[in-house]
């Protein structure tokens, strides 16, 4: 327990030293701010591109604050996931292949402790990046478009965060037994697969973690009362994350030595 904390502190020091603690939140802040700003200035942008047909400009209706906010969150399910997965892909495989894990695991640290420290480090990055990203999206949306109930935004961001955490946990799992690029590819593939399945057959997949982004968007456009409480996607996400961490611990224990 204590040693898991020490390894976590080392993880956080590494994220700070390698500037991950800065550039990942910056990417999320930019992604979050971009959506309300672009939406607000869309008429000007279209006008500046002077060969745009007249009808489009006149038909432009400024979307509501809730829609803009959910579009901003939508950025995180594409570019956001990509950034997170690329950061997480090396977390276990890098240390397995170069041998630094062998040295740490020769100390009183269990593979599970090692994996949990890694997971907690990734969770911290996600928490910071998403928190700051959503704050900047909210700030510009309120300034430029309209106000939103804060509690709804927090709940919507949390739902999105759980979905992103699923993608991170999958990457960690694959990183425990594959090389980094394969781990990134497989986790992107499986998250995209889940999302696709959910969009094709929503009624079948509404209990899976892949339903979380949609739930988050509805929460923003329709409000908390209209959406009601839907726990099953959160529950299945928690199970998926637990499975990934447990699986990664087992696989890490078997594959900790460099070849």
């Amino acid at each position: 327990m204590r040693n898991t904390w020490i390894v976590y502190q080392k993880e956080m020091l590494e994220t700070a030293r390698t500037y991950k603690l800065i550039w990942i939140p910056v990417v999320f802040i930019l992604l979050g701010a971009m959506q309300p700003i672009i939406t607000y200035y869309m008429p000007e942008i279209l006008q500046a591109a002077n060969n745009v047909p007249q009808g489009i400009l006149e038909g432009y209706v400024m979307p509501g604050a809730g829609t803009v906010m959910s579009q901003a969150l939508g950025q995180y399910s594409t570019i956001g996931i990509l950034v997170l997965v690329l950061v997480a892909m090396n977390s276990l495989s890098g240390e397995r292949y170069n041998g630094s894990a062998e040295l740490v695991l020769s100390k009183p640290v269990s593979p599970a402790g090692f994996v949990i420290a890694k997971w907690a480090g990734l969770f911290t990055i996600l928490f910071l990046a998403l928190g700051l990203g959503v704050a900047s999206a909210l700030y510009y949306t309120e300034q430029l478009i309209g106000s939103l109930p804060w509690m709804d935004v927090v709940a919507a961001a949390a739902l999105y965060g759980i979905w992103l955490l699923c993608a991170l946990s999958l990457t960690l799992l694959f990183s425990a037994f594959l090389r980094a690029p394969a781990a990134a590819f497989l986790s992107l593939l499986s998250s995209a697969g889940m999302a696709l399945a959910d969009s094709l057959m929503p009624s079948w997949f509404q209990w899976t973690p892949a339903a979380l982004p949609g739930l988050s968007a509805r929460l923003l456009s329709e409000g908390r009362e209209a959406v009601g409480v839907n726990l099953s996607p959160c529950l299945s996400a928690a199970l998926l994350i637990l499975f990934c961490v447990a699986g990664a611990s087992t696989l890490m224990g078997r594959n900790k030595l460099p070849k």
Partner: peptide, 25 residues
């Protein structure tokens, strides 16, 4: 334990790594 080709964290200083090892012990 010292492995055949030990790998450390290049971004740490020598002092930091040994402190890390001592805390783990």
């Amino acid at each position: 334990y010292l492995p055949q080709s030990p790998a450390f964290y290049g971004w740490m200083s020598g002092q930091e790594y040994v402190v890390f090892a001592a805390k783990l012990a």
